[in-house]
Computed example of a mutant assay.
Amino acid sequence: MGRMSTHVITGAGSGIGAAVARRLHARGDELVLHARDAARAKELAAEFPGARTLVGDLADPDRLSWAFSHQTMPERVDSLLHIAGVIDLGAVGDLTPKTWHHQLNVNLVAPAELTRHLLPQLRLAKGHVVFVNSGAGLTAHGEWGAYAASKHGLKALADALRHEEHDNGVRVTSVYPGRTASPMQAKVHQQEGKEYDPERWIDPESVATALVMALDLPRDAEVNDLSVRPGR
């Protein structure tokens, strides 16, 4: 390739996002790491020497446009990797609008808004947008209503974007990991009142391997939907 690729990544602070960021950083690619605030951006920059940061609160998508207008946006974007996400379990009978809005904003509206802002750069580079979805983006179980709704919506966003940008040469991939050993998974177990054993779930490194495979696939092909399930 000769030229280094530039990747914009949300959720690089932990779990799958951190594993993907480490992988791309190690091979010398350029990283632009999204952070919710300046303090978090500083931590990420220290963790990934040479990486740039982009600050904006995904929980408040209405203000992202304003936040980005005060920063230098990357001129080139070869891939936009939406890996950040939040989860709050609860029965439909108990969930408040605040809980619904928080998950829908972070998991769905913010990715749409971030994509909108970076589409010109992605079209120019004939880049790739990757949405880390979830098994909950395909099936909704009890207590998972709001989270699953946000992830079902994320699948719709990815599918629509793929149709819209196909002629512009932009590839779009949804990755559906099963339960992955991460801080988010520990929180889920806590909310479910179950004991958390990371050994039972997918290693984030394995999801990172699958995701980077989709990124590196030659241009004559595109991974649309990639389901990654626990192997044990």
Rank of each mutant, 00 (worst) to 15 (best):
T6W: 02
G11Q: 02
A12G: 12
A12F: 03
G17T: 08
A19G: 06
D29R: 08
H34S: 07
E47P: 02
G50T: 03
R52V: 11
R52W: 12
T53I: 01
L58G: 01
A59C: 11
D62W: 00
D62E: 13
D62I: 07
L64P: 07
A67P: 04
S69D: 11
R76W: 02
D78M: 14
L80Q: 10
L81Y: 03
H82L: 07
V86R: 12
L89I: 13
G93I: 05
W100E: 09
H101I: 06
H101G: 07
V106G: 01
N107W: 10
A110M: 07
R123Y: 02
G127F: 00
H128R: 04
V129G: 09
V130K: 06
V132R: 07
N133T: 14
G135K: 13
A136R: 05
G137A: 08
G142Q: 14
S150A: 14
L154D: 00
L157A: 01
L161M: 11
L161W: 04
E164H: 10
E165I: 09
H166C: 08
V175I: 13
E192K: 12
K194A: 14
D197G: 01
W201Y: 15
S206V: 13
T209C: 03
V212T: 13
L215A: 07
R219W: 08
L226A: 04
P230M: 12
G231C: 11
